[in-house]
């Protein structure tokens, strides 16, 4: 098990993008846990924030890609 933390994992481009999802989930869980007083509301609020972040970043990515296509 210690070897997991010693040997790096080679990543492909899609794996790199896929690892964005759990990172955004962690950010949204921590953010919503600090904001909400009632912890029962955290799961739903965190999922909504997670989807908002992912969709927002995807939209920004598509927008920048289209801008790049127009300019280049």
């Amino acid at each position: 098990m210690l070897l997991w933390f010693i040997t790096p994992v080679p990543l492909t481009g899609w794996q790199q993008l896929g690892l964005l999802l759990p990172l955004c989930l962690a950010v949204s869980i921590v953010y919503k846990t600090t904001k909400l007083e009632n912890l029962r509301e955290v799961p739903l609020a965190a999922i909504v924030t997670w989807i908002t972040i992912v969709v927002g970043m995807f939209a920004v990515g598509v927008g920048l890609y289209l801008l790049h296509r127009l300019v280049a």
Binding site: F5, P8, L11, L23, A26, T33
Partner: peptide, 14 residues
């Protein structure tokens, strides 16, 4: 959450 996030990063990069 923070422990999982940090050590996932360490497990990926060594």
């Amino acid at each position: 959450v923070v422990t999982l996030t940090f050590w996932t990063g360490v497990a990926i990069g060594g």
